[in-house]
Design a protein around this nucleic acid. Structure first.
Lengths: 110, 110
DNA sequence: CGGGATCCGTCTTGATACTG
DNA sequence: CAGTATCAAGACGGATCCCG
């Protein structure tokens, strides 16, 4: 039994286009509700969003809070621990992707 | 015109399961040839690998060197700049994914 | 033999419509 | 508002073929 590569294992959880965008909304933009994620300019589809939220929950990265329909999603400690990943991604994007830093960027705190 | 989010832009380039695994092979395991990437334990298919290498090249993250068939892929400065992303992903995986750190991990230099 | 391209069946993704 | 149902389009995996 070889222990799996931590990069490969991490990418199994968060290695797709949409998952980290939801984490970004939670981490940097203070969003917590389904409808707020939907409003993001990238335009995630409703079924994809539901699927990613479920995977994030199954992976222990977010928790769903509140009873009934009006629940909030919140990052767990494991989810918060992704902050350096997001930060380094932001730094890389700003430095190396043309057109991304030409205007005052939104407020990526953290 | 809003400037696009650097995270979203970055994920357009590297936000999938396979791309960062190729970067990992280049960055940490000293691989540089098609056949070497194929040998990685995750088992990428030939068509997928060819596609990802082309995208990485188009995105300025790798360059293809050498004439004829026997060429090497090498990280550009833009590709090397992904090192903090990979590093933070390794740290997160080791700390938060069960089973990943139970044996002496391979040598992630950097 | 190494480095792909191509074809094909399957699984996933995504846009939209619909429901409680 | 927070999802599910439906269904088309694309990505994937695997095998095979091809070309130098």
């Amino acid at each position: 039994m070889r222990s799996p590569c931590p990069i490969a294992s991490a990418l199994d959880l968060i290695g797709d286009k949409w998952t980290l965008l939801v984490v970004r909304d939670l981490m940097f933009f203070g969003k917590s509700r389904y409808g707020e994620f939907l409003d993001s300019p990238e335009g995630i589809a409703t079924n994809i969003l539901a699927d990613r939220l479920r995977r994030l929950e199954d992976g222990g990265i977010v928790v769903r809070e509140g009873a009934g329909r009006r629940h909030d999603y919140r990052l767990t400690d494991k989810g918060e621990a992704l902050r350096p990943v997001l930060k380094s991604l932001i730094d890389w994007g700003l430095a190396h992707i043309p057109g991304v830093a030409t205007e005052p960027p939104p407020d990526y705190r953290g």
